[in-house]
Amino acid sequence: FHVTIHVGDITFHIHGVSEEEVKKLEELVRRGADWREIKKTIEEIEK
């Protein structure tokens, strides 16, 4: 999957994300995680 996440003024683009990881990111966004937490999760996914 290709994912784009907008957190305030920050936009993250992630490529090659599995469905499971998409759900993890959706959950973070849904519970209102700040951009640092989302960035950390994205960095883990990209490894």
Rank of each mutant, 00 (worst) to 15 (best):
G8C: 08
L28R: 01
G8N: 08
K40C: 08
K39E: 11
E43S: 05
E37R: 01
V17A: 11
H15D: 10
H2Y: 10
R36I: 11
T11Q: 07
E21T: 15
T41Y: 15
L25E: 00
E19D: 08
E37V: 05
I45S: 02
A33K: 02
K24E: 06
L28P: 00
T41S: 06
H13A: 06
E37S: 03
I38F: 05
R31D: 12
I45Q: 01
I5M: 07
F12P: 00
L28M: 14
G16K: 04
I42L: 11
I45M: 14
D9G: 12
T41F: 15
T11C: 08
I14R: 01
K40G: 05
K23S: 09
E26S: 06
E37W: 02
H15L: 10
K23H: 10
K47F: 09
A33T: 05
E19A: 14
K24G: 04
T4Q: 07
G8E: 05
K39A: 11
T41H: 14
E26D: 08
I5Y: 03
D34Q: 04
I38Q: 00
I45G: 01
L25F: 05
I14L: 12
G32R: 01
K24V: 13
L25V: 05
E44S: 05
H15F: 14
E44Q: 08
E37P: 00
K39P: 00
I42S: 00
G8A: 07
F1W: 14
L25D: 00
R36D: 15
K40A: 14
W35G: 02
H15W: 14
R30E: 14
K23T: 09
H6L: 09
R36T: 14
V29F: 08
I45A: 03
T4F: 07
V3S: 03
V22A: 13
K39Q: 15
D9I: 07
I5T: 01
E46K: 10
V29R: 03
E43L: 07
E26K: 09
F1V: 08
A33S: 05
G32P: 03
T11R: 05
H13P: 01
I10D: 06
E44V: 03
W35I: 13
L28E: 02
K40I: 06
V3D: 01
D9T: 10
S18T: 15
E44N: 04
T41L: 15
H2T: 15
E20L: 12
H13L: 09
V7R: 05
H15S: 13
V22L: 14
R31W: 06
I5G: 02
L28G: 01
R36F: 11
H2A: 10
V3T: 06
R30P: 00
I5R: 00
D9W: 07
H2R: 10
R36G: 11
V17Y: 12
I14E: 00
G32Q: 05
A33Y: 02
